[in-house]
Amino acid sequence: MESANLDMTNEKQEDTWISQLAGGLVHELKNPLSTIKMNLQLLEEEFMKPQNRKEERALKKIQTIINEMNELQNILDDFLRFSKSQTLECHPHSINKAVEEVLDFVEPEAFLNNIQIRKHFDPHLPLLAIDKNLLKQAVLNIVLNAIQAMPDGGELIVRTFANGNDYCIEITDTGYGIAKDKQDKIWEVYYSSKKKGTGLGLPTTMRIVKAHGGTIQLESEENKGTQFTIRLPKHRICKDHETLHSQG
């Protein structure tokens, strides 16, 4: 038993060390990238009114490099989120409120894509000891995938409810679904079916949920839609949660 506990402690220490190393590396890379991007944008301004074909070609190349820089920064941001996804700072929070904030954030994009958001929240769920920001990131990754899976519009249905020993967040879309042979692969780091996907979104979600002691269930059928269910264990209920509720 002591050996098992020691192994778990060593594993956590190793994860923390890797997260710190990755975070430091990303910051070291982002600083010069920001400087390069800023100078490219200044150069772009000088060529915004090209006088000849040579300057037109130069402007196009500069804009291409800026776009690639943006993609690289997105990859670094995703990698940083992935590396930090097991380091929790838990406090009493409402999962309803956390999910609501995510949906408020994506509502404009959903509207532009003709996607209707339907919310069904259980008002009786207690406060849970969660890392609110990380849990929001986990939900956001799923919701963004759902929106991208409905390019011609559809419905995004989000529910929270209690089920057995778990409190659940269920996210359902009416998009094109995930093929059976790809349903296991979506959790693999760097796997992506999207042209510009980093392949870190869903693996990050999985790490965050597991760090909370939870699980994720996937159900999907091609051309019908996909449903993700995040399950958080009831033992994360905050003690004296009724008092915490009354305090805000």
Rank of each mutant, 00 (worst) to 15 (best):
E68W: 15
R236Q: 03
L244Q: 11
M69G: 03
L6K: 14
A22E: 08
T215E: 13
A129E: 08
F105G: 00
L200C: 13
V209Y: 03
L80E: 07
L244C: 09
E242M: 03
L29M: 13
I237G: 05
E56V: 14
K196R: 07
S220K: 04
L80T: 06
N96E: 12
M69Q: 05
N141R: 04
L25V: 08
A146P: 03
Q51C: 07
L127W: 08
P233G: 03
W17L: 11
I178F: 12
V158S: 07
T174A: 09
M206C: 09
A110P: 06
N141V: 02
C90L: 08
A58S: 10
K210V: 13
N67F: 03
K196G: 01
Y176C: 05
S246Y: 04
H27E: 15
H241Q: 08
F111Y: 11
V143P: 06
I169F: 02
D173A: 05
S19Y: 01
I171D: 04
E45Y: 11
G199M: 09
H212V: 13
Q183G: 06
L33W: 01
H212F: 11
K136F: 01
E107S: 07
D122A: 01
E71V: 04
W17H: 09
R236C: 02
N114D: 07
S34Y: 03
W17Q: 11
I142Y: 07
N31R: 09
G24D: 14
L25Y: 01
G197N: 11
P92M: 07
D173K: 01
H245Q: 04
D122M: 02
E46F: 06
K224M: 02
G248C: 10
M38H: 11
T160I: 04
S193L: 05
G213I: 15
Q63N: 11
E100F: 14
G201F: 00
V26R: 05
F82M: 12
K196H: 07
F79A: 05
C238P: 00
K210C: 11
F105H: 09
K194D: 08
E155P: 02
N223D: 14
A129T: 02
A146S: 15
Y176Q: 07
E242D: 03
V106N: 04
E45S: 13
C238E: 01
I237T: 13
L156Y: 06
K132W: 08
W187H: 04
I142R: 12
E11T: 15
E45P: 01
L72D: 00
P126V: 07
L21D: 04
K61L: 10
L6S: 09
A110M: 06
Q63F: 00
E45A: 15
